[in-house]
């Protein structure tokens, strides 16, 4: 099999994931895009492992490790997203702008947090 097929597929998948990371608003969709990028890397690892006929099968071993790390990452990432959602009432990446210019240390967190958080809490209570 031509090596270019898996390599090109992997590159394209990676760039699709890249687009998703940069363009998606919901943090969980961003995490999905990260998964796509990781899988593109995995495909590359496997393809080159097979191509090189590596005696140690480093590619496959690393793929397994990557999968495990991706699982851990998704667990931590989701925990963070949930915490952000609980605190801010939103998991939209582009609304978390605390580091923007104009957010002095004396100001509160996001300006939309006060109106979003009570809504969330009342809904949660109901």
């Amino acid at each position: 099999m031509h090596l270019a097929y898996p390599a090109v597929l992997s590159a394209l998948l990676f760039c699709v994931g890249l687009y998703g990371v940069l363009a998606r608003r919901n943090a969980i969709l961003v995490l999905m895009s990260v998964e796509l990028m990781l899988n593109a890397v995995n495909l590359n690892l496997v393809a080159f492992d097979v191509w090189l006929r590596d005696a140690l099968h480093a590619g496959q071993a690393l793929t397994l490790f990557t999968i495990a790390i991706a699982a851990a990452e998704i667990g931590i990432g989701l925990a963070i997203v949930l915490m952000v959602y609980r605190n801010r009432g939103s998991s939209d990446v582009d609304r978390l702008r605390d580091t923007a210019e104009g957010h002095g240390p004396g100001e509160g967190p996001d300006t939309d947090a006060p109106e979003a958080a009570p809504a969330h809490t009342t809904e949660a209570a109901a």
């Binding site: 890249l18 605390d98 210019e101």
Partner: peptide, 17 residues
Amino acid sequence: VRKAQTGNVQTYLSALL
């Protein structure tokens, strides 16, 4: 230059990439 400091992580990441 201050205008670039939007606080949007995606913007930063786009510029970086």
